[in-house]
Design a protein around this nucleic acid. Structure first.
Lengths: 105, 105
DNA sequence: CCGTATCCCTTAGGATACTG
DNA sequence: CAGTATCCTAAGGGATACGG
């Protein structure tokens, strides 16, 4: 499970879907740099794990909606907690790094 | 920052150090499967980020102690929160997966 | 014991092209 | 639009050998 949050794209999809239902193309545009392939793989994994739900409208052109399940929402909350931690300690980490880099020049 | 927790070895080292001060060899034994190379890289990154502190005793044979900084401890707490989430939802995820696998056979 | 330096192989994932 | 299929390369990380 922890390795799921290790995946960069997974986290970004989770965050984007936490804002509401999104279509495939909307996710793609909202997440700069993601390839079609990775978006497909990522959403598929999230669906398989029961974190995201998919609804397909067999219209022309086709439309697919993605949205977080309750479990997905709770995981997204963990992501936000991590993001908070990250923000709170960003400066301290940066300071530690520059100090390390100075001392190991 | 989030990608740090994506790294499997980083998480395991963090967890092990949360139990107390450890020497290089102790970490290696406590984390099955980690290579010397990855342990070195992982501890070095953690030190650079100010999450772990190193104390070297220039004895023969040499000895090096690793321990979490306060910031490292707080990150370890986040890891434990994730582990809790994981434990709480383990069954639900497993169920979702087997259902998915059944339906996509 | 505590690392560093190389080699080497696997795999993640981007680019591209094609379907319903 | 919403994917699937194929190719290809960059790099993460294991195995091994060596140094202080």
């Amino acid at each position: 499970m922890l390795d799921r949050l290790g995946d960069r794209w997974t986290v970004l999809v989770l965050v984007e879907l936490s804002k509401g239902t999104r279509r495939f193309r909307e996710l793609e545009r909202a997440i700069p740099g993601i390839s079609q392939r990775m978006l497909t793989l990522t959403t598929k994994r999230l669906c398989r794990d029961g974190l995201v739900e998919r609804t397909v409208y067999p219209t022309i052109p086709p439309q697919t909606d993605y949205r977080l399940t309750p479990m997905g929402k709770s995981l997204a909350d963990m992501v936000f907690a991590l993001a908070d931690w990250s923000r709170d300690h960003k400066d301290a980490v940066a300071a530690a790094r520059s100090r390390w880099d100075r001392e190991h020049a």
